[in-house]
Amino acid sequence: MAFSARHLLGIEQLSRPDIETILDLADKYVDFNRKSHKHSDALSGLTQVNMFFENSTRTQASFEIAGKRLGADVMSMAMQASSISKGETLIDTALTLNAMNPDLLVVRHPHSGAVDLLAQKVKCAVLNAGDGRHEHPTQALLDALTIRRAKGRLHRLNVAICGDIAHSRVARSNIFLLGKLENRIRLVGPKTLMPAGIDQFGVEVYDDMAEGLKDVDVVMMLRLQRERMDGGFIPSEREYYHRWGLNAEKLANAKPDAIVMHPGPMNRGVEIDGDIADDINRSVIQEQVEMGVAVRMAAMDLLMQARAAERQSAGMMV
């Protein structure tokens, strides 16, 4: 299956075969990453620039390792410390970098739609590493790969996404992806943290954890985004933990072999009990991190292959 997207901006634009193509290649990169020698020349000679306009440790590290293992020349820019503070606009920054002929820009931005905007202004491939509350496509892809490997399939599963849906780009991308692959999605959390009209996304909405987790195959916990809480979404963290924090008692409502996921970073004792997070029989949180590198390698590899094919066919036209 040929992957022909010019950018990876969101899951919404991907077809089911696109998603499966990425996951299949990512599977191969998982094995590759477990070898002692892990260096490929797939992106040799290509320049990858990571532009993170919002703080990130794990995602940025994951993209950096992924690029380096594929042989790309990787540069990571901490955008908050640079020209942005001198008043340069996002587009000017993008155009400046564009003039340096990178092949791949990996961008995270606090505003929804900012990465789409940037992609319209540059020649190279753009990969969305999270924009506002909009999308975080590689997170959904790594979650999908983790589920597929743990459950042996990625369809007709009951998946509960729990917690702060309103502020979560991870939730949106996962709803799109899991929906495209015909899974049953439940959203569980306080009504104040549910986006308006979310019931029209082909999901079931629950306020109660015990009910929402009943017989699910996958429990996906979200981080309570305390930094985005500008006015009383929940009464207190202890009440939140009491009602929506994942502990053994609530998890007992799920299927006995249900897996527990979290995109990290975790607030232990707020949305998830520390013991559950560390339970190697239930938690796949560390696997998610491992899959993250493989999925990002696959996505970047495929984007670069698509660009090469495009150049080749353009060359043949002449």
Partner: peptide
């Protein structure tokens, strides 16, 4: 305006 579209786009919205 708050609703499914604003939720999908991830934009801050008002009812």
């Amino acid at each position: 305006t708050s609703g499914p579209l604003a939720s999908k786009l991830g934009l801050p919205a008002v009812s």
